[in-house]
Design a protein around this nucleic acid. Structure first.
Lengths: 213, 213
DNA sequence: CTATTTATAGACCAGTGAGTCTATAAAAAT
DNA sequence: ATTTTTATAGACTCACTGGTCTATAAATAG
């Protein structure tokens, strides 16, 4: 089995279709058949590429994360200071394109399965680990390690909580509210920091250039 | 259909069985048959009381919430100050008996279905609404309405996020870490407040008396 | 140009799960 | 005591789902 371009193209297509199906139908409503139909192919074909449903959903999870990871990277490489790196993580997580109920639904569906599937568990652990690592590299330059540690956790837990709410209650929490909440947290954790606010402003601007609308 | 004592007894039993099954098998692994087996009856009988699976899970959701609600009440009625009421909500949510991966798993499973089922949505909205209301009554006496509003949201989002993490990554977040995180948040939001710390200490004590171990 | 591999689909299979039908035991009502 | 209601279970149905088998078209290799 050598993986051609076609192979990569198809797996990408079908992972995407799976993620979208997940977001519209929920986990219980997501069948291989429906994913195939959405991609406009036969379910046999989907199975041909993934072998079984679990691997399909696993790839859907990776697919969903890839977008976010790119967004974080795009902001990180343009960051010059620790504070800018912190805000890169925050802004990317609430980007207009990604922080939507649809996507949050898909995530929720996958999260719920994590405790019962070691593969998903590993993927999710890696995702959290990377967020923690991104935050820690920046925060260690801004506070002692101990505090950096707990602040990094606070930030990422708050991010998770806001995503949860976004998926839960349609029209409840949107980008604005979420960013306002993050800012409440940041301002409380690090009050009176002009550097922090400057960094926030710069990343906000970069983000609105990269990703207008 | 007059609902006897037997009726209430059975629905309670089966709701509990459903909640436990959910926590051990996940949503996809939870079938009416399994719930019935766990309760030691036939699946026909379970269906006799609930009509269909959706209603069974709906009741499981209410069942899971009832425990928490009692815990909150038990602390609230013993609270004398606004700060104590705030900490009643916090402490109850991380009570040793409830803040466990098992229970978090069950919640996660149900949360994931909320976007696709209006009934679940209503229940969850009510739960969030009550938490918000509990927090607001207290916080309005401690800050202007606007700020009380956003602080209440921050607290409840953080609680949700910690529950999410508790369910996700076995051995990741436990009561100690969770309470430490909540305290980081509270200390940042309301620094240098002896009244707040006194309230925390008192509620902590009451809770450890009500619920030793 | 033929042979082999890869991509795709249709038909099919076996398992399962929700919900119903029928039957009987228990309880309540009259 | 008899009739009606409620509780419980076993057998069954029907839909659906993941996955396989077979077949064919397309592509690639030799």
């Amino acid at each position: 089995m050598k993986r051609n371009k076609l192979w990569r193209l198809r797996t990408e297509e079908y992972s995407k279709a799976a993620f979208e199906t997940l977001s519209e139908e929920g986990l219980s409503g997501t069948t291989v058949e429906k994913v195939a139909k959405r991609a406009g192919v036969s379910k046999t074909n989907v199975l041909h590429y993934f072998g079984n449903k679990a691997r399909l959903l696993e790839m859907a999870m990776r697919y969903g994360n890839a977008d976010l990871a790119r967004e974080v990277s795009a902001l990180l490489i343009r960051s010059n200071t620790p504070w800018e790196r912190v805000y890169s993580v925050i802004e990317a997580n609430f980007s207009r394109q990604f922080f939507t109920p649809k996507i949050a639904h898909a995530w929720l569906s996958l999260l719920a399965e994590i405790p019962y599937n070691p593969s998903y568990q590993r993927i999710q652990t890696a995702i959290h680990q990377r967020m923690r690592s991104n935050l820690m590299h920046a925060l260690e330059q801004l506070a002692e390690r101990e505090r950096a540690e707990e602040v990094a956790l606070a930030i990422s837990v708050m991010i998770d909580g806001l995503w949860l709410r976004c998926g839960l209650h349609e029209g409840g929490i949107g980008r604005e509210t979420a960013l306002q909440q993050m800012e409440l947290l940041m301002e409380s954790l690090f009050p009176n920091s002009p550097e922090r606010l400057a960094a926030k402003a710069r990343i906000d601007e970069i983000q609105s250039i990269l990703n207008p609308g």
